[in-house]
Simulated scan of single mutants.
Amino acid sequence: MSKFFTAHKIYENVTQIGGLGGELCYLIEGEERALLIDGLTGIGSLKAFVRELTDLPVELVLTHGHVDHAGASFEYGVCRVNPADVALLYEHGDPARRYEFVTRGKPEGAFLPRMDDVVPLCAVRTLPVCDGDKFDLGGITLEAVAVPGHTKGTLAFLDRAHRTVYSGDACNPNTLLALPCSTTIETYKQSLLHFASFMDAFDVLYGGHGTGAVPKCIIDEALELCDEIMAGTDDQYPMAFLGRNFLYARSFTGDFKRRDGKLANIAYKKETIFNER
């Protein structure tokens, strides 16, 4: 029993691991080696926890460089990441920033880690991973799909054997754009069209937050929202989140559930809708 992590199998050879901030990562085991998709926040030893789950050699690959996905990079000392997000990995690696992520908003009586539990910042050997790259684990292969939007280097990983994508924050009920590291809505639409070209190969997405599988129709819904945002016909619902003011394409309840019952939502700013002409 870990104070820092939870784990449960979503498939026979795939374990979903949760961190203290509600962030998720995925351990996929093949016959010869294992792939750890994302590294949570880097509080507590994820490397030691993973070693309890598998004896296979493990390679860490990131969907993107944000604070809640790249923390274990500083424990492993090496990771695969899209080159567009390498600077972001270090920017979000500050231990105080990672500690704040998992402790903010904690209810009274909840377990709180110490600063000593935060994996310290260090130099990381970053190996490139790009659209189309494949990871042969022995009996199962994962394929990287580039989905720039939430960050410029965002990737999803296609698991054809399970008809599943491990999507990080690429497309979800609260897809945050208009961050300093994000693309425009116009570029994100093109990313989603590329993502959608793989939809015959998968049925569900497992993301970086929220433990359940999300049906692939969320991608088509997000494409519809991109068109509406660019046409100015979306809800333009104002909402502050994580200290930033956004417009959301669709109004929603307090738990980010759209009032019309659909799944996808996009947070953006008017000045980051279109590419520069």
Rank of each mutant, 00 (worst) to 15 (best):
residue 227 D to E: 09
residue 19 G to S: 10
residue 6 T to C: 04
residue 185 I to T: 03
residue 139 G to L: 09
residue 264 A to G: 12
residue 98 R to C: 08
residue 113 P to M: 11
residue 235 D to N: 15
residue 234 D to T: 14
residue 224 E to K: 15
residue 31 E to F: 10
residue 198 F to C: 05
residue 16 Q to A: 03
residue 266 I to G: 01
residue 250 R to L: 03
residue 193 L to Q: 14
residue 189 K to G: 13
residue 29 E to N: 08
residue 20 L to N: 02
residue 204 V to Q: 03
residue 156 A to K: 06
residue 67 V to G: 00
residue 130 C to R: 07
residue 38 D to I: 05
residue 27 L to M: 04
residue 194 H to W: 01
residue 178 A to S: 15
residue 17 I to G: 06
residue 145 V to F: 00
residue 182 S to L: 06
residue 52 E to C: 02
residue 128 P to Y: 03
residue 273 I to K: 13
residue 183 T to C: 10
residue 276 E to W: 11
residue 51 R to I: 01
residue 61 V to A: 06
residue 73 S to A: 06
residue 142 L to A: 14
residue 231 A to Y: 10
residue 273 I to Q: 09
residue 216 K to Q: 13
residue 129 V to L: 09
residue 136 D to E: 04
residue 10 I to C: 07
residue 168 G to H: 05
residue 219 I to A: 05
residue 198 F to D: 01
residue 3 K to N: 06
residue 10 I to G: 00
residue 67 V to N: 14
residue 8 H to C: 12
residue 234 D to P: 00
residue 129 V to I: 05
residue 19 G to N: 04
residue 63 T to D: 14
residue 48 A to F: 12
residue 107 P to L: 07
residue 17 I to Q: 07
residue 55 D to K: 14
residue 32 E to G: 05
residue 264 A to P: 00
residue 207 G to R: 02
residue 246 F to C: 02
residue 200 D to A: 08
residue 270 K to T: 12
residue 216 K to W: 13
residue 255 D to G: 09
residue 114 R to L: 14
residue 186 E to D: 00
residue 17 I to Y: 13
residue 198 F to Y: 08
residue 55 D to P: 01
residue 224 E to A: 15
residue 204 V to G: 00
residue 122 C to D: 09
residue 126 T to H: 14
residue 189 K to T: 02
residue 13 N to H: 03
residue 272 T to H: 10
residue 255 D to V: 07
residue 147 V to S: 12
residue 117 D to S: 04
residue 75 E to Q: 14
residue 9 K to H: 02
residue 260 D to N: 01
residue 141 T to P: 00
residue 14 V to A: 12
residue 130 C to T: 09
residue 27 L to K: 00
residue 93 G to W: 09
residue 109 G to K: 03
residue 111 F to V: 10
residue 199 M to P: 00
residue 275 N to R: 08
residue 11 Y to M: 07
residue 124 V to I: 11
residue 206 Y to F: 03
residue 82 N to G: 10
residue 15 T to M: 05
residue 275 N to F: 01
residue 140 I to L: 09
residue 254 G to I: 02
residue 200 D to E: 11
residue 215 P to Q: 11
residue 17 I to L: 13
residue 71 G to F: 14
residue 118 V to C: 14
residue 25 C to Q: 09
residue 100 E to D: 15
residue 168 G to S: 03
residue 257 K to P: 01
residue 160 R to F: 08
residue 41 T to L: 12
residue 19 G to Q: 04
residue 103 T to S: 10
residue 154 T to D: 07
residue 137 L to F: 03
residue 149 G to I: 11
